[in-house]
Design a protein around this nucleic acid. Sequence first.
RNA 1: GGCCGGUUCGUCUAUCGGCUAGGACAGCCCCCUUUCACGGGGCAAAGACGGGUUCGAUUCCCGUACCGGCUACCA
Length: 505
Amino acid sequence: MSKKPRVRFAPSPTGGLHLGGVRTVLFNYLFAKHFGGDFIVRIEDTDQTRFVEGAEDYIFETLAWCGLEPDESPKHGGPFAPYRQSERKAIYREYAEKLVAQGYAYYAFDTAEELDAKRKEVPNFQYNQISRAALKNSLTLLEAEVKSLLDAGTKHVIRIKMPANEEVKFTDMIRGEVSFNSDQVDDKVLLKADGMPTYHLAVVVDDHLMQITHAFRGEEWLPSAPVHILLWQYLFGLENMPEWAHLPLILKPDGNGKLSKRDGDRLGFPVFAMDWTDPKTGEKTTGFKEHGFLPEAFVNMLAMLGWNDGTDNEIFSLAELVEKFSMERVHKSGAKFDYEKAKWYNSEWIKKLPVSSYRLQVTGMLAASGINIDDNKKLETVLELIKDRCTLLTDFVQQSSFFFKAPETIDIAAIQPKWNEQKNMFFLELIRAFELMQSWDHEALENELKELAAANQLKPGELMLPLRIMLVGGKFGPHVFNIAEILGREETIKRIQHTLQLLTK
RNA sequence: GGCCGGUUCGUCUAUCGGCUAGGACAGCCCCCUUUCACGGGGCAAAGACGGGUUCGAUUCCCGUACCGGCUACCA
């Protein structure tokens, strides 16, 4: 890398950040950090009609959760501020006017309504080299007319004047050479009637002004690339243009097409990184974080959707991804999102990470279900014991609550059919034995039960399940003597007695 | 419709002309486990199609098919 890379993620603050967006951030971040470069977040809020309150904060909270902190942004500051395009409005007109002066762009006075009508009337209507000759713009109007229109403050836009029959090409870091014929692309609006730039102008101007060296975005942008290439050529010179990479799309698991928020709702999995509530409608969309995903797993899973290091390794920390990442190994084709695989990554990270790193989040989840933890050491012991059987952080609630609170319902039906007086006597004896035990650990407890069972001519196997039901309430959880050990003598005996009462009723 | 992009097991993918096509998730079976998991072992499962180029094509080229993206004064 000849110079330190500067990459940017340029979201528009219109709602929650979805999978594909986070992955675009990730690949930007990994590439930049791999080469010791900078990661910039620029807010593309040029469409004032789509502005959504809180969306920008949400984006930064999401990046923070993922561990993908920007070096420069409206929130983090930086030498190229402001990083919000709405605050840079004044900058863009100058470039648009320059293009008009050079003959690369023109004023267009057609109203949005007129164009809408045109689209209804003419199938596949495009404002292009052919149709512009019959429309109201500075190419068809007399110079004097244009001047008087402008002087009168008539609403107008500035459109790029696509050249005739020119090959526009560039080298995409992922796809290689991609070329377009300029005849096929329409005269995109560069500056809107409200004076705001469109994405097309803003992205080129700001990438230049912010000295962006590499521009990565989703594949859905490929068709508008020729507009950007031409603008670079006209404004700042192709030799100064960043290198482009158009990332493959993340597809819906069933059927085909881009993964959308709706697919998640329909199929029952999150699409947004974190919970998002639309401030206008109040509609809530759930996120990976709240579904119980660890950021390490979320990032890992996203990285593997379209990239791998060429080995069989699938588990990577952020630091490892930074070290291994290369744009050359990013795929061309889209990847269907597989929620089952996503959960597998999470279970791997739950096992891999020390329980202390997610203890707080589990504490919050337990609190939400009415269990308040006052003994963190006990919590960590419990988490350590049950982590192997948890796929999502939310699984910890069911798997651990009985350690802190006696089960509300006991699955009596699981033991009743084989229950008899002999077993009842056994458990009464077991309580007495437990009361007398010197050391309270799982091995001693197991030995105690086995010896007592032998003395009563009972098979231990017939007694383990009842004991489990008594302590846990159901047929799940880690080894029953480990549970008893953690529960302690008093609580263990109490729960046995409680169930015994239920059984003799 | 037009333009652009893509195409290896159900899914994510390895392979940079030599393949008995490897791994992972999911599925099925077995083992471990006096619960449920974890774990271990195994089974099943793929190069869209047709032409070239080549001693040899999954790999390179062309065509076809299929899938997707875009086609706003949205990003």
